Simulated assay, not measured.
Amino acid sequence: MLQDMLISLPQVLIDGLALGAVYAVVALGYTMVYGILQLINFAHGEIFMTGAYIGTALFILIMGMSWTSAIPQLIVFIVVLLISAGLVGLLGVGIERVAYRPLRNTPRLIPLITAIGISFILQDVVRFIAEMMNGGTYILTGPSLFTGQVTIGFSSISSLFNDASFKISFIIMIVTAILMMVALDFFVNRTKWGTAIRAVSLDRETASLMSINVNKVISTTFFVGSALGGATGVLFAMQYGTIDPYIGFILGLKAFIAAVLGGIGNIRGAMIGGLLLGLMEMFAAANLTTLTGGILGAEYKDVFAFAILIIVLIFKPEGLLGKPTAEKV
């Protein structure tokens, strides 16, 4: 059993890092909004999905133009990533302005239900547009960029390991996700706007008395979180190739699990939680059949992810890097 697990370990690590990077960046959107509004924005998974569709549509549009054939794929990718992030960021600001701001001082359950409603609206709107564009089907094929295969030889090092392979898009995806996470960490901890975000997160009323424009800070938070989610959707479409309007539902829930695992409201915790969840999920997908003697297969990896959420909530509800807070009564 152990030898079988070691044989698949290199490929598990590569696939887990790819999936974990997606979870980590999407989890940042959850944790930023929760940190400043104490709101679980369950529409964030659909914002990620919208970014995937916008990015794919832009790729199809740009690559279909004859004059773009001379432009390097990396330049096209960067342009599409920036445009998609900007558009989805504006979408997030619009959702906050229309759906969340009027409910800011209401009981927490009301904005939570509103977030679920927004997620269904986004699903159906994107599904309708995709059907119109794609001739009656809503599944789109993502861009075939950076598809070259790279093989890393581990079997030559030890007979315990197999060789592992990945697409060039894996490297682009990991590097881009790391850059986004580092940039966000710098923005929150080293800039004036980041200081304002942390101040509003700590005490909204006191921050407003210190001449901080709370509404503008919250809108900025939604823009940054949504832009990161949209950019991650582009990376997902590039890496995995096929998207549909429902990819944001389960992936969004798992990104929320990652945020809880790392410590909801803690940005660095969300990064670590996402990477850990991706690695654990890929490990489960590769080895559940072996560990359970064939009773459970790879399709139960989702159950494994939600079991992690239950365990974390029972034994360490504040998460790995979160701090327990005392509730005033």
Rank of each mutant, 00 (worst) to 15 (best):
V217I: 14
V200I: 13
R198C: 12
R204M: 15
V217C: 05
I218V: 15
V224N: 03
S226F: 08
T221I: 04
D203S: 09
K216G: 03
S211W: 07
T195E: 10
V217M: 06
S219Q: 12
D203C: 04
V224K: 02
A199S: 15
I197N: 01
F222N: 04
R204T: 13
A196C: 12
I197Q: 04
S211C: 11
V214M: 11
V224R: 04
T221R: 00
N213G: 05
G225T: 03
S219W: 02
R198D: 11
E205V: 12
S226L: 08
L209K: 12
F223V: 07
L209V: 10
S211I: 04
V200G: 05
K216T: 07
T206N: 12
S201Q: 13
V214L: 09
I197D: 02
V217H: 02
G225R: 00
S208Y: 04
F223D: 01
G225E: 02
A207K: 08
R198Q: 13
L202G: 01
V200D: 13
V217T: 13
T221E: 00
S211L: 08
R198P: 15
V224D: 06
T221N: 02
R204D: 10
N213E: 14
S208K: 12
A207Q: 11
N213W: 06
E205D: 15
A207C: 13
S219P: 09
V214H: 10
I212R: 06
S208D: 12
F223P: 03
D203Q: 13
F222C: 05
V214Q: 08
T220F: 05
A199K: 08
G225C: 03
G225Q: 01
